[in-house]
Design a binder for these strands. Structure first.
Lengths: 99, 99
DNA sequence: AGTCTATTTTAGAATTTAATTAATTACTTA
DNA sequence: TAAGTAATTAATTAAATTCTAAAATAGACT
């Protein structure tokens, strides 16, 4: 059974908002392949590591991203299948290209 | 053929951003059933009509929403199937409820 | 302990966003 | 043409977001 999206707009809007920043969407794209450290993300996404951490925090607080610590590396990953499905849907819908 | 989402993050992030406000997501939900006037939207979404118009403008500028004028009513509607599919995906993913 | 590396946290300024109110436009109808 | 309705635009203010730079934390290594 489903509840209407209308009953959950606040939650869903907050979730979308946490994903709708170029740096954050870039991070999510990177994490599709599996967990990465802030340093690995920074090597691909050109901004400061402080900035990467801040954006990771926003998504962590929203529940998009999980972290685990190992030595002095912190590995971040997409926290659940739903987020991954959403990202894949975005790609299918908006990145289709004619050959 | 697909291009990677990574090549389109700026565009997709901007699109998501235009949808990730509670009032705007509420408007999109309402428009799933078909076009509505600002007045009709206002009767369901409790805010001023100026505010409704402003949010409609944001989505219109982003290409989510189209408008047509008839007499002194302006009917707004979801501009394309992709947006509708995305909204339905959000509902399926995040509004599923156990019976 | 001291140093190095990886990361996070904090504080600040600059920018953007959002809501409110008032004024304006466009159309209809008496 | 004047009044009424629907919607938009503009201006203001308040609030939230973002980036930068500096300081702080945590673990690894010597």
């Amino acid at each position: 059974m489903k509840t209407d999206l209308e009953n959950n707009v606040d939650l869903v809007a907050a979730l979308l908002k946490s994903m709708s920043h170029p740096v954050r969407l870039r991070i999510l794209c990177q994490l599709r392949d599996g967990e990465k450290t802030a340093g690995e993300l920074q090597s691909v996404i050109k901004t400061t590591n402080a900035n990467i951490t801040q954006h990771l925090n926003i998504m962590r607080n929203q529940g998009c991203i999980s972290s685990r610590k190992e030595a002095n590396y912190i590995y971040s990953s997409i926290s659940n299948q739903k987020i991954l499905t959403l990202i894949n849907t975005l790609q299918t819908l908006f990145c289709e290209k004619e050959k």
